[in-house]
Write a protein that binds this DNA or RNA. Structure first.
Lengths: 69, 69
DNA sequence: CTTTATTGTAACATATACATTACATCATTC
DNA sequence: GAATGATGTAATGTATATGTTACAATAAAG
């Protein structure tokens, strides 16, 4: 699960704690998602986009074939 | 959970059954997602995109403020 | 060198995404 | 008018996303 959450978060100048609060989850959840250790739900993906002012494609898109490499 | 999975599926000329097979889930899961009755994981969203040749933003984006209306 | 902020991660609990089986409805087709 | 394909949905089970609590490591700050 390669994604760009950490990049988006840093660009938005948020800590994991702050992003967690804005998105309604815990800091641990943000940490694990950044580390690629699990597979967030669409709702949470959208909340992360709103909090960082980016789109789903910008943060979460993975080209076909690059996903489970 | 408003999304455009059904529109994308019909444009790709797939039945629920065929889309389910391509994405590795059951027909019931596809049906419930189309009906907005739950909140798919990012992995499954990506599989649906690949199977229908569309992007995350095209199928799953919801503008801030329109989500939990 | 203690304090504080940020991040990683482990153990255990809970909520929910998804599977399985099954049955119903509605078209179409033979 | 039985048979078949497409879809909706309900009951129950399993896997996993997420919460809670807690501890460790690092770096900056005082």
């Amino acid at each position: 699960m390669k994604n760009k959450v950490k990049i988006a978060r840093v660009q938005a100048e948020l800590t994991q704690q702050q992003l967690a609060k804005k998105t309604g989850v815990t800091r641990q959840t943000i940490s694990l998602i950044e580390k690629g250790k699990y597979n967030p739900t669409l709702n949470l993906c959208l909340e992360i986009c709103y909090a960082t002012n980016q789109s789903l494609d910008e943060i979460f898109w993975i080209p076909k074939g690059e996903k489970d490499v």
